[in-house]
């Protein structure tokens, strides 16, 4: 007798089909996921040498300059040369980093030197590659200390009690001693001179834009280039300032070149508005085309000459301010002829 075959009930069929669907769904999900794949977490990169700066702070400095060779007589290099790029700059100078990174910073190389006779006497050399002479000049001029004495022989350089600061083409360099010992300062000088000779790709050191400032009454070494805004106002980019002396008054003048006269007028209006919004009061101008603003007792003058915005910043004496303003306007007018 042949046995009857088992006939599935309705319920059994439904359950059977439903259960079969489970592995099918899993397989479908897997094949879909298989198409998109990211196996970078498994490693197997082609070459780690593509990212040399990620090896940490104390990488060998691969710049063209042999920093160790710049050690003066009686001094030797102390520790490794260090190298920093835009991402790692803060690891060396922390809060000051934005000043550089916002001004075209490319690379910082540093090297410390120590006296062979006295290991308390050290100085550290910082070489900031700022990409262009204007950028280097900007960070150089912005940080210039008030009590400083000029350093001869170099166009943009000044000393303080324990340090020497200079801008050479696209490089801004600082040589900072651990004390004001004369021995240390001599060593700093030697290294600075040797350094300038070795900075072969520094590029031209002159800043041609400085020539638009008239030299009459100009206080030497007071030029500052603001790349990203001046006097608290972000719109005053690429603005030069200089200090002038009239009788016994010091007047700070500023000039900002704009693409065209319309842009210059707009910027002048915006800056004047900014000063007023922050507490300035418009006062009667000597020249109707010019804005005169009294800002808590000092005078702010904003004017336009062709494509230039020019003005006087926080003057104490109105007459002196007017004289310098006229001087500068004349100089600019001559430029445009």
């Amino acid at each position: 007798m042949s046995p009857a075959r088992h006939q599935p009930t309705r319920l059994e069929s439904i359950v059977a089909i439903a259960l079969t669907a489970i592995p099918v769904i899993i397989l479908v999900l897997i094949f879909t996921a298989h198409k998109t794949t990211d196996i970078s977490r498994f490693g197997i990169q082609s070459s780690i040498t593509e990212k040399p700066q990620s090896w940490g702070l104390l990488t060998e400095d691969k710049s063209a300059i042999d920093l160790a060779g710049l050690a003066p007589q009686g001094f030797k290099p102390f520790g490794h040369g260090e190298s920093y790029d835009e991402e790692t700059l803060y690891e060396k100078i922390n809060g000051k980093a934005p000043l550089y990174t916002e001004s075209g910073f490319v690379k910082l190389s540093t090297q410390r030197y120590v006296s062979e006779k006295n290991d308390e006497l050290t100085f550290e050399l910082y070489i900031y590659n700022m990409g262009s002479a204007a950028n280097a000049f900007s960070v150089y001029s912005i940080q210039r200390r008030a009590e400083s004495s000029p350093a001869d022989g170099m166009p943009f350089a000044y000393r303080t009690e324990n340090a020497l600061y200079l801008a050479d083409g696209r490089y801004y360099c600082e040589l900072i001693g651990s004390s004001d010992s004369p021995l240390l300062l001599d060593a700093v000088d030697f290294t600075a001179t040797a350094l300038i000779e070795n900075l072969k790709d520094a590029g031209p050191a002159e800043i041609p834009q400085l020539a638009i400032f008239p030299s009459q009454n100009l206080i030497p070494n007071t030029f500052i280039l603001y790349l990203n805004g001046a006097f608290g106002f972000a719109g005053l980019t690429n603005t030069f300032s200089a200090k002038y002396k009239v009788n016994d008054e010091t007047v700070t003048a500023f000039i900002s070149k704009q693409p065209d006269p319309a842009a210059a007028k707009e910027l002048a209006d915006q800056y004047a508005e900014f000063v007023i919004v922050n507490g300035g009061e418009k006062i009667a101008p000597s020249d109707p085309a010019v804005k005169y603003i009294d800002f808590y007792g000092s005078l702010e003058i904003v004017s336009v000459e062709d494509s230039f915005v020019l003005g006087i910043h926080q003057a104490d004496d109105r007459m002196a301010a007017d004289i310098i303003l006229a001087l500068i306007r004349n100089s600019l007018a001559k430029e445009n002829q």
């Binding site: 000051k96 008030a146 340090a163 600082e174």
Partner: peptide, 9 residues
């Protein structure tokens, strides 16, 4: 010139 300074001035 904080936080690093650099010059005694």
């Amino acid at each position: 010139n904080g936080p690093t300074g650099g010059s005694t001035s």
